[in-house]
Design a protein around this nucleic acid. Structure first.
Lengths: 178, 178
DNA sequence: TGACTAAGTTCTATTTTGGAACTTATTATC
DNA sequence: GATAATAAGTTCCAAAATAGAACTTAGTCA
């Protein structure tokens, strides 16, 4: 499968990745969240090829995650700002950072801390259930076909169906565990 | 900058991307969360090149996000399971899905819904502040240098410093807004 | 013996990326 | 008035990563 076809998968994750799932886009967005807006500043901070940056910014503008705003007239210069759609990627950035902090940080600890202005405290944002307010754990979640898949009458996420395990196999017990 | 050098950036996001920031890894992990464990099943579902799959699985095992477990002896066959480090990527997957659901879904609505077993309800998990329990909004968050950067005495994320805006420029007002 | 299964590996053409140099419009400096 | 500087790009080409198809390995089943 070609990468260009990825947004045609009936999968929100794949569609999201079609927008931000390349080498640089996520880092560009991180910078945008930190207040970077100008081409030169992105380039200096990320040390990425200018052509690539130009292309990625254009794509993000096309996708409406950023807007290109003229900030001076002579010579005409533009800067890039997060749109609502772009700002809404914040949880993605934060989750990725959290994971990096927990699993990839060096002995010195995480490079950046987040402060919540509301309460003034340094926090690690966490996923919660809006119904029962419990913290979300992967094992407690189930996926079921949503409207788009039900409509099409597709088998959806039936892949997780338990497989027959060769009887008496040593792995069987573990297999049932997960 | 070469992609291989990305994990040397002092940035948790970059380090995370060095593990899962390529074309397929995230989709492999999604499948893993849905219960897929075997090479053939990943391959059939994702329709990705086998060599690529093999390489990505190997890398995830090296990084300790998956383990390779033998599930039968003759012939020896292995399957891949999420480790704690892997399971901990759930918030990343969920955030990406949420965004896709909100911004990239077709007219039919999202392809998958999540059920929280705890309360039995269909939910959209959200990032919350563990201190004041408010939902996290990008605009209410500030980043400051964490231990790793303070130790090194680096300028950290000073890039967001306000720039002088040409006086009287039409963009100035908007510029201050954000 | 030959077909089949699961999990890979090998090969090659195509696509994407990285790096450096060049362009354009305009202001500031010698 | 020529020369440099700045910001935001674009152009060109070599190097790296990816896609797709075919092949391998080890063992079972008819």
């Amino acid at each position: 499968m070609r990468w260009n076809d990825i947004d045609q998968m009936t999968c929100s994750l794949a569609r999201t990745l079609s927008v931000i799932g390349d080498r640089w886009t996520m880092l560009i967005l991180r910078d945008a969240f930190l207040g970077v807006r100008r081409f030169e500043d992105f380039e200096k901070d990320l040390k990425m090829p200018r052509h690539r940056l130009s292309e990625r910014l254009r794509k993000l503008v096309e996708q409406n995650a950023l807007t290109r705003v003229q900030y001076q007239t002579r010579p005409r210069r533009f800067e890039y700002r997060l749109t609502e759609k772009g700002v809404d990627l914040y949880p993605v950035i934060v989750s990725l950072m959290n994971w990096g902090d927990r699993w990839m940080a060096g002995a010195d600890g995480p490079p950046v801390e987040l402060i919540h202005r509301n309460c003034g405290k340094q926090i690690v944002p966490a996923l919660k259930c809006p119904e029962c307010d419990e913290e979300i754990r992967a094992r407690e979640m189930t996926a079921r076909p949503g409207p788009a898949l039900r409509k099409r009458g597709l088998p959806a996420y039936g892949r997780a169906a338990p497989r027959p395990v060769p009887a008496g196999d040593a792995a069987a017990a573990i297999n049932r565990a997960r």
